[in-house]
Design a protein around this nucleic acid. Structure first.
Lengths: 197, 197
DNA sequence: GGCAAAATCGTACGACCGTGCTTAACTGTG
DNA sequence: CACAGTTAAGCACGGTCGTACGATTTTGCC
């Protein structure tokens, strides 16, 4: 009873990588079987349908994201340091974790017009993520580092935008100055949000 | 000799729509033939290979983009009004033109790990686009509306980010406040870039 | 060590993919 | 109006897709 769960995880590890490169639609059972040295049918047996595979890939990616980005941020001191840690971790994650960029960015574009359970799960994930950013920004407000009247949802919206741009500039354009530009955009955001001295 | 070119354009019109919904990879010759009431082979004859179809789709989308976004902006008065027009046109375009979001956003995520002519063409397009934004921002500097020391490339980078976020928030999350948030982000960008009064 | 259960494989299926090749229908020009 | 050239269709191919099912190997417990 334990072996199955083990290989299932191994499959999902690989699947997240593949999906981040070729998208959830480009994730094919045959190719995934090759990557994991399994037979197509052996692999398929773990997921009764492709849709179920996609759902589990999204969930698996989400867990990795929480472990690698959100948890380290929550471990940092409340307020601005936590905001900065969140951003730094995201940058590291987005750059290194996947050979093929962020799974969620890929899925977001792919699923934005395709209703279904996968889309629903992704939307839930992203809303959670924006909410997490906003909540963390709120700690900086509470600590007196950000302005009292800061709209934390707007802050989350804009910070998320900075991350999307970084993804675009570094992955597609291979702009070597992307990290620098991203950081400047981030600092500008922080400056605007900060309590005027 | 004229009929062929006509249907080719009609095919590409439809293909741009389909590709913006399902991506360049999801764009399939069989389905495209159905959408255009043609036979698969009849359609295929216009493009000798799928890759050629994809290239032409990108080029066709680019022409539409220039007509609908860039040209109207260049028709506006130099400086800040031109920057604003560019932004407004982009918002309209991104919201209405495609049933399935912006073709270039979709292609950007899809092709970021897939080397080849399509990727190259897209990268060229996007670099042009960023350069156009920077150039237009430079007119606002020249008019004395933006700060003299404004880094126009950084401005283009950040404005592009605002557009990406809008796409994400409105298309995937169906956030009804996306236009409002996008506009606020834009105004904040303008404020930072503007010459202090 | 034997045995039920779980995990994996082999094979097959219909559907659709991109792409040739041959033939029929249309177009525009002299 | 005929004819050359362009445009579209029909059909066939090898491949891969997701999925089903029965056989076979591997696992974990008594």
């Amino acid at each position: 009873m334990r072996k199955g769960e083990l290989t299932r995880r191994a499959i999902l590890d690989e699947a997240v990588q593949v999906a981040s490169q070729h998208g959830l639609g480009g994730l094919t059972i045959g190719q995934l079987a090759e990557h994991t040295d399994m037979s197509k049918s052996g692999l398929f047996a773990h997921f009764k349908a492709k849709e179920s595979l996609q759902l589990q890939v999204l969930e698996h990616g989400r867990e990795q994201f929480i472990d690698n980005v959100i948890r380290p941020a929550l471990a940092a001191p409340r307020g601005l340091p936590r905001v900065r840690t969140l951003f730094d971790q995201w940058l590291i994650w987005s750059g290194d974790e996947f050979k093929g960029g962020c799974l969620f960015v890929a899925a977001a574009v792919e699923l934005d017009d395709q209703p279904g359970p996968a889309r629903d799960a992704l939307v839930r994930s992203e809303r959670d993520w924006l909410e997490t950013i906003a909540t963390i920004a709120a700690t900086a407000v509470a600590e007196g580092e950000f302005r009292d009247d800061l709209d934390v949802d707007q802050f989350a919206f804009e910070l998320h935008g900075v991350m999307l741009t970084h993804h675009h500039a570094s992955r597609l354009l291979h702009d070597e100055r992307a990290p620098e530009r991203t950081r400047r955009a981030f600092e500008s955001l922080i400056a605007t949000a900060s309590r005027p001295t």
